[in-house]
Nucleic acid binder design. Structure first.
Lengths: 241, 241
DNA sequence: TAGTGGTCTAGACCACGTG
DNA sequence: ACGTGGTCTAGACCACTAC
């Protein structure tokens, strides 16, 4: 067990994370400057810088020289570079357009409630969307969201969107998705999904199972994503650099 | 175009990377201590630390308090935590055993020579192996290696291995794999691979296409990996933290 | 011009590993 | 006891943004 308060910079980092989790700073405004934080936490600027640097490395904050340090903003560009891992077979990387298929309020199954860290049978939304690149259907999404976390969500949020879903979470609910864990399988397409993707039944699809997390590992949403695998693929880079 | 020599720490980092690329320091011995490097490059220890910190963040060096700073070592454990992205459907993560299927010397196709950054039709090895977890066949690998980069490679290197392939590259050839890029597709299994994996033909398989790189983006090997997808899956984490 | 983050320094003191 | 990396400080100077 590592104490997060053993060192000054860990203590500062923990305090800043806690303030971020409480949504004290919106994603468009600068957090307090380094000298101010240094005096507030009674440490040197170097120690503040170290704490902030770690949060920057974790994609939680971004620094802008001459302007300040900000909460990361879920722009489409950010999404494309950090979270979106699907490209065409030719290696083209772009964001798809989204079309709403269905919007339902249901009760969470045991599996889903566990992944969302809510009680079994709590109310959730299930949203299905069809994602297309240049009008070519490519991906079927099933999204699961806790109603408690996202009260008063309705169809209209999904039908005409000019922002990413995580951008909406941040703008409307003040919830910032920080990291994501995914598992990928190959499965034969069933009738419903194959038809949407304009594929013959039983052809192999990539199936991506994703859970997104906010501060301190709090689950935000879960989704199952079926991908037209002969035209699109998943990509990944490992090892840093 | 970013000049890598604009700042002292970038200059030091570049110099260290160059020495690493030239294999000046083996992976079992410490690189020079921080005070020595500081005096050698005429900068303060803080600047040396910054350069080293970036190399540590890129998984190139590891620090060990009280002992020194080392070139990262490709132990099985390191492989499992950094590069190996396959787990069982129950979420168990372990390294497979490898059995040699075939070892050939062939000429590179255009596609492969491009990925390995060698001339078309240069001599390469093609190695096929069957990977198993607890004696259950799970993965078929096709590995492509440049003969120029790995002279005098023979079957025996692959038949009885107690180390990972990248561990062998590092120990025998002094080549350290630093990062990896992968694309993942779903494909129907052909007869040859389905049989090896004890699957019916045409069932969906995960197909992972990997290129591994050493210092400065130099390609080391390429492999195509076919995975028994109903028992095993690919996993990934995005966003850091 | 004032305020922000970015680089770099020189040094104190601590924690750890080896002899 | 000594040398290693780890933390933290206080301050100089630079680069960029805003007003």
């Amino acid at each position: 067990m590592v104490k997060t308060t053993e060192f000054a910079y860990k203590r500062v980092k923990y305090a800043l994370t806690e303030l971020l989790r409480q949504n004290k700073w919106r994603h468009n405004q600068a957090i307090p400057s380094e000298p101010i934080l240094a005096s507030r936490y009674q440490v040197s600027i170097g120690t503040i810088r170290r704490a902030i640097n770690e949060l920057v490395a974790e994609n939680i904050l971004v620094r802008e020289q001459g302007r300040g340090t900000f909460v990361v903003s879920h722009t489409p560009d950010y999404m494309l570079n950090v979270f979106f891992r699907i490209e065409s077979s030719e290696g083209v990387r772009e964001l798809p357009n989204s079309k709403l298929l269905s919007f339902e309020k249901i009760r969470a199954s045991k599996v889903i409630s566990k992944k969302l860290a809510i009680k079994p049978y709590e109310k959730i939304y299930r949203v299905k969307t069809l994602l297309s690149f240049r009008n070519q259907p490519a991906i079927v999404d099933e999204i699961y969201l806790s109603e408690k976390m996202f009260p008063n969500l309705s169809e209209s949020f999904f039908s005409d969107r000019n922002e990413t879903l995580y951008g909406l979470f941040q703008r409307v609910y003040g919830i910032t998705v920080l990291n994501i864990s995914e598992t990928i399988e190959a499965i034969p397409g069933n009738q419903y999904i194959s038809k949407l993707l304009k594929l013959k039944i039983n052809l192999p699809l990539l199936c991506v199972n994703r859970v997104a997390y906010a501060y301190k590992g709090k689950p935000v949403d879960m989704r199952i994503r079926y991908i037209h695998s002969s035209k699109y693929r998943y990509f990944n880079n490992l090892g840093g650099g």
